[in-house]
């Protein structure tokens, strides 16, 4: 751990890992509840065209990815709200178009395999201080949006009709959460890579919801799991010379596996306690339990 801090690029990468670990699951909690788990994946595909455009025109690939993926996210949301049946195919067209376009444009630029690979699977050693500033700025934007619009996004992800009947700007909020997911993809792309970005939005949330009772606690725990997997995965990849993206994602998946087992045991214990209480076998049965039963709990 100490050893890796001697390298500039590792210090930058560590700060990035913390920011990715915080932002991806924060946005992911809303995405999962809205049943859009694969949205991030689709945006990742589309972002590749942005990278190709950036490289080809001599501009920053990160800014190219940002512009194209935000536009793509807005397009996805518009397609989704327009029609339910056609949207599925339209989304697929957008995803594959993005991927194919990205590969072609990167090749045309002449960078070829190596640079494409670094965006697809992440490459910590090539990050620069400028990258870091961009990522810090974007992370502030994402966390700011979650803080300011959190209550509205919560109701939107609970029930769109109730959100509408509460006077919320449902269409704007839907586009906002998709665009925020796109920004998060760009934040995570340098370290984790476009093909695995989505995992860090979804897997920590899936792990957290096994053991939590509330939305806020799920988000907080998911952010904790996100930071833990990102930092540990990065350190491990440095120590054992592994690619960082897959290391981070596999760690998050390991936490998920533990949470599933732990959550199942937890629920079984609660259920067993409930059954004992109903059988009247335990004198420790509380008033709350009795009331819960009376109310049909």
């Amino acid at each position: 751990m100490i050893e890796m801090l001697q390298y500039d690029f590792m210090r930058i990468a560590l700060v990035m890992a913390v920011l990715i670990g915080l932002t991806a699951p924060a946005v992911g909690t809303f995405i999962v509840q809205r049943r859009l788990a694969l949205l991030g994946d689709g945006i990742g595909h589309i972002a590749l065209t942005g990278i190709g455009l950036g490289l080809l025109t001599g501009n920053s690939p990160v800014l190219g990815a940002l512009a194209v993926s935000v536009l793509g996210a807005v397009a996805i949301e518009v397609l989704r709200s327009r029609s339910r049946s056609g949207a599925d195919v339209a989304l697929a067209v957008l995803f594959y178009g993005g991927l194919a376009g990205g590969v072609l444009l990167t090749n045309a630029q002449g960078g070829g395999g190596a640079s494409l690979q670094s965006y697809l699977f992440g490459s910590i050693s090539s990050v620069t201080v400028t990258d870091l500033y961009v990522v810090v700025g974007l992370a502030v934007v994402v966390l700011g949006i979650v803080a300011v619009f959190g209550r509205e996004l919560f109701l939107l992800s609970q029930d769109e009709d109730v959100a509408r009947a509460s006077g919320l700007p449902v269409r704007f909020l839907s586009v906002l959460i998709a665009a925020t997911a796109a920004v998060t993809v760009v934040i995570a792309m340098r370290a984790i890579g476009l093909l695995l970005v989505s995992a860090l939005m979804i897997v920590p949330v899936a792990a957290a919801q096994q053991v939590t009772r509330g939305f806020r606690s799920t988000m907080m725990l998911a952010m904790g799991i996100g930071v833990l997997s990102a930092v540990t995965g990065l350190a491990g990849s440095f120590r054992y010379d592994l690619p960082p993206g897959p290391s981070i994602v596999l760690l998050a998946l390991a936490v998920f596996a533990v949470a599933v087992v732990g959550g199942t045991a937890l629920r079984r214990r609660r259920a067993a306690r409930g059954a004992l209480g109903r059988a009247g076998a335990t004198p420790a049965r509380t008033k709350v339990d009795a009331e819960a039963e009376m109310l049909g709990g």
């Binding site: 049943r35 939305f215 806020r216």
Partner: peptide, 26 residues
């Protein structure tokens, strides 16, 4: 507006208080 049921969505849990608090949003 009180709809027929509380949708499960993607399965992220919410506490009773969180759901009730969201009624203040307007």
């Amino acid at each position: 507006y009180v709809p027929q049921r509380l949708p499960m969505g993607g399965g992220v849990p919410s506490t009773v208080r969180e759901v009730v608090s969201s009624g203040r949003v307007a």
